[in-house]
Nucleic acid binder design. Sequence first.
DNA 1: GTCTATAGGTCGATAGAC
DNA 2: GTCTATCGACCTATAGAC
Lengths: 189, 189
Amino acid sequence: MSRGNTRQRIQDVALELFADRGYEKTSLREIAEQLGVTKAALYYHFKTKEDLVASIFDDYAARPTDELIDWASDQPTSLETKLEILRRYSECLSGAEPLFRFMHENQAALRDLSIGERMKDRVLTLLDLIREEDAPLTDQVRCSSALFTMHSTMFTMRDTPFANDEKRQAALEVAQELVAAAHHGDPEG
Amino acid sequence: MSRGNTRQRIQDVALELFADRGYEKTSLREIAEQLGVTKAALYYHFKTKEDLVASIFDDYAARPTDELIDWASDQPTSLETKLEILRRYSECLSGAEPLFRFMHENQAALRDLSIGERMKDRVLTLLDLIREEDAPLTDQVRCSSALFTMHSTMFTMRDTPFANDEKRQAALEVAQELVAAAHHGDPEG
DNA sequence: GTCTATAGGTCGATAGAC
DNA sequence: GTCTATCGACCTATAGAC
């Protein structure tokens, strides 16, 4: 039962409950109960509730996203690079779907926590990498819509007859199309 | 000070706090304090906290959206109709921007409340009106992305040098473009 | 319509035993 | 590492006076 992986077991149970019921409605008592331990045991591994949720963010979202940003920063700012950024970001998302859904649905709750600001920083950095600074407003909307499309498609259309990977692929396609349209001006050609 | 408009003053202050600090973090005590009354006075006008937030939703979001849906249901399902639906929905959004932002950022908190389900119903109805049922997945993503683009553009890009109406117009343009692409198949022509 | 007062409960967090 | 026991703060909601 209780080996050296307790820390990660706490993270997993916490994420499941956070994503399912929301951050504020999930109490440390519930997390502890589901694990078969007490609240005090949680406090041995994590200093605070915020510390717990931040550690989940670090391990499952911040690290992969930072790697992507690091890679992208060394690339030329061509359309191909942008499309590849989207493709890799799509992979980040699918590797941590419950976490991203959780962050998406709990923006208000996370706003004052460090994780809210840190996630926002990363999305804005990605946005800077795929859009052109002096592009017209419509093109900027296309780029931010591209990122938002990938974010939201995983959570909406949940009761469609399509598989998750199909949806992710379709969202990526639409996102790439939006960025391509923003890259060389008018999509109608 | 206390005339017959107390009910709406409560709604306004509540919405402001809900949008600013989040639903769960806003207590009835705070709302009452900001109004210069006590919690008990709030309970005279609204049976519960959920009742209060539902009344705001009814007055500022449900009613305008239902009118739009009623109108749209009597129209032919042409591309022109769809584009007009988006245009009118954009107006709904701009007429109740703080409320929609609040709902967007507090999905997890509102999920178990009636308002969560009721908003979702309306968005799905709108989605049904602008997409084709047997369209390929990519086109369905385009349509849901169109709605999401309008939703999100008001809240993201908050520190851009563009005015709110400009952004709303740009979001509408991109949304219409997405639905047009979904309507007659391939956007590349 | 608004008040005071409080019931009845949950929360995050800590101290200290084992 | 995990436990029991508890603290102080805060919450929604209600009862009843004015």
